[in-house]
C-alpha cells in the first residue's frame, strides 16, 4: 500500500505522527495531568538544553558519544566484513568460525560490561570494546548471510563468461553483496548507540549516557528528557544518512530509493 502513496502524503503523515506526540506531550505536561517530576514540560526541556549548552556539555557530550559509537562500530565493521565473506565462501572457515560466533552472539553484551571495565577501565577504550562486542558477532553472521544469499546464477554467469574464482569474488560477489551489507551497517549502528548508552550509564566521565545517569541523581527529569531527545535525533539523522549513502553507493539497486 505504501508504494502508491504520493510523496507529499507520505511526508504529511510522517510529520503528523511527530506533531501528535508533541501535542500529547504539551497536553499532559501543561495541563498538570502528569507531575513535572515525571514528565517535564517541553519548555523546561528546552531550558535544560539551553543550560547544558551554556555549561559547554551539550556539544561536548554529544561529540564524545558520537565519537565512541563511530570508532567502536567501525572497528567491528572492518573486521567483520572480510570474516563474513570468508564464512560465506569457505566451508572450512564456516566450520571454524560459525559455532564460536553463534555462541558468542547470545552472550548479552550488557553482561560483559563489568569485564570490559576490569580490562579497559572507564575510558573510551572500554566503550569501543562494548560496542565492538555488541556488533561484531552479529555483523559477521549478517554479512555472511548476505553474501551466501547472492543469486547463484550471477556467479555461474560470470564463470561461463570466463571469470576465474578470484575474479568472480571481486567483480561479482562483492558488488552483489553491497546492498545487503549497507542494510546490515544501518541496522548495527543503531545497536551500537544502545550499547554505548548502556556502557556510559554504568561508568563514564562524559557522554550522553553519563549525563542521563547524573541527572537521575538530582532528579533533573528535564535533562534526562533532553538527553533522550538528542539520542533519538542522532539516531534519526544516522538512519537518514545511511539511506542517503545507500542511494549513493548502490544506485543500481532495485530497492534503492524504495518507498519514500
Amino acid at each position: 500500500m505504501v508504494r502508491i502513496l504520493g510523496r507529499n502524503i507520505y511526508s504529511t503523515l510522517t510529520l503528523s505522527s511527530f506533531t501528535f506526540i508533541l501535542l500529547m506531550w504539551f497536553a499532559l505536561s501543561y495541563s498538570g495531568a502528569v507531575k513535572e517530576l515525571f514528565l517535564p514540560s517541553p519548555g523546561s526541556v528546552l531550558q535544560a538544553l539551553g543550560e547544558m549548552h551554556e555549561e559547554g556539555i551539550l556539544v561536548d557530550y554529544t561529540l564524545d558519544s558520537t565519537y565512541r559509537v563511530v570508532v567502536g562500530w567501525i572497528m567491528a565493521v572492518i573486521v567483520s566484513i572480510p570474516l563474513g565473506m570468508l564464512v560465506a565462501t569457505s566451508k572450512k572457515a564456516e566450520a571454524i568460525l560459525t559455532p564460536v560466533i553463534e555462541f558468542a552472539r547470545y552472550l548479552p553484551v550488557v553482561a560483559m560490561v563489568p569485564l570490559t571495565l576490569l580490562y579497559f577501565g572507564i575510558g573510551d577504550l572500554q566503550k569501543f570494546a562494548v560496542i565492538f562486542l555488541g556488533t561484531f558477532f552479529q555483523l559477521v553472521l549478517m554479512v555472511s548471510d548476505v553474501v551466501a544469499g547472492v543469486q547463484r546464477d550471477l556467479l555461474r554467469a560470470a564463470a561461463t563468461l570466463g571469470a576465474s574464482r578470484w575474479q568472480i569474488y571481486r567483480l561479482v560477489l562483492m558488488p552483489a553483496s553491497l546492498p545487503g551489507i549497507m542494510d546490515s551497517l544501518r541496522i548495527t549502528i543503531g545497536w551500537a548507540w544502545t550499547y554505548l548508552v548502556v556502557a556510559e550509564l554504568v561508568a563514564a566521565n562524559s557522554g550522553l549516557g553519563h549525563m542521563i545517569l547524573k541527572s537521575q541523581r538530582f532528579l533533573a527529569t528535564d535533562r534526562m528528557f533532553a538527553g533522550l531527545i538528542i539520542i533519538g535525533l542522532l539516531g534519526l539523522a544516522t538512519d537518514l544518512f545511511f539511506k542517503w549513502l545507500t542511494r549513493v553507493v548502490v544506485p543500481w539497486n532495485e530497492k534503492a530509493g524504495g518507498k519514500a
Partner: peptide, 15 residues
Amino acid sequence: ADRGVVFQSYTLFPW
C-alpha cells in the same frame, strides 16, 4: 568462455 550460457533467471549484473 568458449561456451556462453543464457540462463532462465535474469543474470545481468545489476550494477
